[in-house]
Computed example of a mutant assay.
Amino acid sequence: MGLHGKLVAAIEFKAGGDVFHELLRHKPHQISTITPELIKGCDLHEGEFGHVGSIICWDYILDGKVKKAKEVIQLIDEEKKLIQLKVIEGDLLELYKDFVFTSHIETKDGIDLVTSTFEYEMVNEDVEHPFSTLSLVVDVIKAVETHHLAQP
């Protein structure tokens, strides 16, 4: 069994992909307001939201427990509406030597998809792939969509 993995989820986003990208890039702290049952907080530790090199710390609920992830923004590509974050501290690093999250927007046949990708290396062969973490991200995307569709 290989220790490297990649998981991808592409979720239709009826509120417009630009909405999700802008929220994740410039206002990630608002995600905890929209989804308090999933994301408990998002704090800026260094730099500015939406800028490469900035460090963000997330508090989230996974499998009924509060978890933390400190991430550095590695890459932003406005043309692809892409943001890439690398986990540098937190609970995920107990299971994974390396963990990178990428979000980008794809438009196919007039439908916006929020595509979330995890690339990771497990610390050993006994570690499971991060399916529950990906499920959490999908739940957050759907909750943000529902929130924005309900806005006047």
Rank of each mutant, 00 (worst) to 15 (best):
C57A: 10
F118S: 08
E106M: 10
K14D: 11
K27A: 09
L75M: 12
F118M: 06
H104F: 13
V123E: 02
K14A: 15
I34L: 10
Q84E: 10
K70Q: 12
K108C: 12
I111L: 10
D91L: 07
M1G: 13
I11E: 08
P28V: 05
G53P: 08
I83P: 06
S116T: 10
V140E: 06
G41Q: 13
H26T: 14
V138S: 08
E71C: 08
T117K: 02
S132L: 02
L92E: 03
G5C: 06
I73L: 04
M1H: 13
V52N: 15
G47C: 04
V123W: 00
V138Q: 11
D59W: 08
L149S: 05
C57P: 04
K68Q: 15
I76T: 07
G17I: 04
L23D: 01
I76G: 00
A150E: 11
H51S: 10
G90D: 03
P28G: 04
G5W: 02
I73Y: 07
G64Y: 02
I76R: 02
I31M: 09
C57S: 12
G5Y: 00
K65G: 08
I76C: 07
I11R: 09
L24E: 02
A69F: 05
L82Q: 14
S32R: 11
H26K: 15
Y60C: 03
H129Y: 13
E12K: 15
G41V: 11
Q30T: 13
L3A: 02
A9Y: 04
L92W: 05
A69L: 08
I88L: 12
V19G: 13
K40N: 09
T107Y: 10
G2H: 14
V140R: 06
Y120L: 02
S135I: 00
R25H: 10
E37M: 13
F20R: 03
F131A: 00
E48C: 11
V123N: 05
V140A: 03
I55S: 08
A69T: 01
K142Q: 14
E145V: 02
S116R: 11
D18K: 12
V66H: 07
H26W: 09
G47K: 07
